[in-house]
Computed example of a mutant assay.
Amino acid sequence: MPSVKAFSLLLLMLLAATAQASTLRCGSALISHGDDTQEVLDKCGTPISQDFLGYREVVDYYGFHTEVEVEEWSYGPRNGMYHFLRFEGNRLVRITSKRGR
Rank of each mutant, 00 (worst) to 15 (best):
V93D: 14
V40I: 15
G100H: 02
V93A: 07
L24A: 01
K98N: 07
P47G: 11
R86I: 09
F7C: 07
N79I: 09
D35S: 11
A17M: 04
Y82Q: 05
H83Q: 14
V59S: 09
A19L: 00
H83T: 12
I31V: 13
R78G: 05
E88F: 01
F52H: 05
P77N: 11
V70T: 12
T23V: 04
V68K: 12
G76A: 09
M81E: 10
E71Q: 15
L85A: 07
A29R: 05
T37A: 13
G76V: 07
Y61K: 06
E67R: 07
P2C: 08
R78F: 03
K98V: 09
Q50Y: 03
S32F: 07
R78W: 02
P2A: 14
Q38N: 12
P2Q: 10
K43N: 15
R101E: 15
H83R: 04
A21Q: 04
E72A: 06
F52K: 06
L9A: 15
Q20P: 00
Y55P: 00
D35G: 03
V93S: 09
P77L: 01
V59F: 02
L10N: 13
E57R: 13
V68G: 04
S49M: 14
S28D: 07
F52Q: 04
I48A: 04
F84K: 01
P47I: 08
M13F: 02
Y62R: 13
T23M: 00
F84P: 06
R91E: 12
F64G: 10
S22K: 00
G54H: 07
D42A: 08
A19T: 05
A17H: 06
F84E: 11
F7E: 13
E39M: 03
E88K: 07
T37R: 13
A6Q: 06
G100F: 05
H83E: 14
P2T: 12
M81A: 04
R86H: 11
L11F: 04
V59E: 14
H83V: 03
L24H: 08
V59R: 05
C26L: 04
S3Y: 03
E69R: 05
A16H: 01
T23L: 01
R94V: 04
T46L: 08
M81R: 04
T96W: 02
Q20K: 03
V58F: 08
G76N: 14
N90Y: 15
A17P: 00
E72M: 11
N79C: 13
A19E: 09
A19N: 00
F7L: 10
S28C: 01
G54N: 08
G80T: 08
S8D: 09
L9Q: 14
E67M: 12
D42P: 02
Y61V: 15
D51T: 10
N79Q: 07
S8H: 09
A19P: 01
M1C: 06
M13L: 09
T96P: 15
D42M: 06
G76P: 11
C26G: 07
F64W: 03
G63T: 11
L10E: 14
S3D: 15
S3I: 02
L53V: 11
A21Y: 01
S28N: 03
L53A: 13
